[in-house]
Design a protein around this nucleic acid. Structure first.
Lengths: 225, 225
DNA sequence: CAAGACATTCTTGTATACATAATAGTTGAC
DNA sequence: GTCAACTATTATGTATACAAGAATGTCTTG
């Protein structure tokens, strides 16, 4: 792909954000990042500019960049939109999927089943991404696929949080099964409805999410002076 | 808002792109832009970085930035997603709109009617944006509103193209009327369906769009040497 | 002892300089 | 005459330097 410094830096920092290394609300010091990555401030700034445009960080003039820390209602809105887009992807996938798409989807589903069976949350988390990516790809709308991937990334930290809820993995897997059936059988409406329900944080799940937001790792290592 | 140079430059260049001053496929020379705006290359680059992240321009390593020139099928995909998001906004608006929202929507609709009556395409084009913005706002989902605005901006050049089709303004206005009725009466499903149909470029409209793509202003002023 | 003002320091924002890759033009050879 | 290779120029990518604003800490005064 592109072997530019700022490009790599962007991915690096973005990754740091979605994995939680850079916690929401954390200040991103340009000089600090520059020395850490062994480059000057220039490519760091350019990477931050891009992340700012995507919405992963916020920059206030003369006051630096901070990792966005969306309020619960905003997180809810993001899931709401994600649900709609995934539903759309599912509906298109049901109509347009090829044999390859079908095999990729089934393969991803089986991996999720294995992960659930071994009760490996991290693995399930990873394979779950494969599963959803397979649906995006099967929609055969590259633009929709891109949009879904972007939003998926932004929601990654909160998605992870949700898996902490008891039995969520098992319920999620069951829903996956229904989704696969709908897509494979070409039932666009069902695929849309099932994916909407699968992704949205409705009812109790919203409460669970809020509760887990508080249980994250400590934001700022409380200064001990 | 933010009085930073690169911020203003970003808006300036972005505006130039959506208005067509910078045509699709056109190369954006950093030095040229820098001298034009009377600044150094640094803030120009930062502005371009942001536009690149949004997807308005493409940057190939060591080969500069060009305004994206999406293929017709990609434009179609973008309208497809836009239709879905607008449908969602309409559905939410039908359920959640306040008295203020209702008045704003009706006001925007009336402006569109006046523009259509005077057969002023440019004015209709502008008021049409107000109309759609009113729906986004009425959805009371700030995230959805933002997403819609971003996509709306990206599609602006092609939306404009569509108005060239005979009678499109009249048809569009009639659809607006139905949409308003659905939202005001609180019929979420109808609002969703109507907005989807209104925004999507289905059937003949896709053909019309393709045809008009060729009729744009000359991309590159053919060199006469 | 507390509160406000001033100064110092740190960080961001912009400009400039330098290095490197790409492109175009020219020259030479077949 | 055409094609290829080499050179020169131009533009991008990164580093560094400089300027300006914000934050913090200290000192003075009430």
């Amino acid at each position: 792909m592109s072997a530019n410094t700022f490009h790599k830096l962007r991915d690096e920092i973005e990754n740091g954000i979605v994995t939680g290394e850079f916690a929401p609300g954390e200040r991103l010091d340009e000089l600090q990042l520059a020395t850490r990555f062994g480059v000057s401030r220039t490519p760091i700034r350019e990477a931050l500019m891009q992340l700012s445009a995507i919405g992963l960080i916020e920059t206030r003039p003369r006051r630096g960049a901070v990792v966005v820390d969306p309020a619960p209602d905003r997180i809810y809105e993001m899931f709401e939109v994600m649900a709609e887009l995934e539903g759309m992807a599912g509906a298109l996938a049901a109509r347009r999927h090829t044999e390859e798409d079908r095999l990729a989807l089934l393969s991803a589903h089986e991996k999720c089943e294995a992960a659930e069976a071994s009760e490996d949350t991290d693995r399930y988390y990873y394979d779950n991404e494969l599963f959803h990516s397979a649906i995006y790809a099967a929609s055969h709308s590259t633009f929709l696929e891109e949009q879904c991937m972007v939003l998926h990334k932004r929601l990654r930290p909160y998605r992870r949080l949700q898996l902490r809820v008891r039995n969520r993995m098992k319920v999620s897997l069951r829903e996956h099964g229904d989704i696969v059936a709908a897509i494979v059988s070409g039932d666009a409406d069902a695929a849309r409805a099932l994916l909407r329900g699968h992704v949205a944080v409705q009812g109790d799940r919203f409460g669970d999410l809020i509760a887990n937001l508080g249980r994250r790792e400590i934001r700022k290592p409380s200064l001990s002076t």
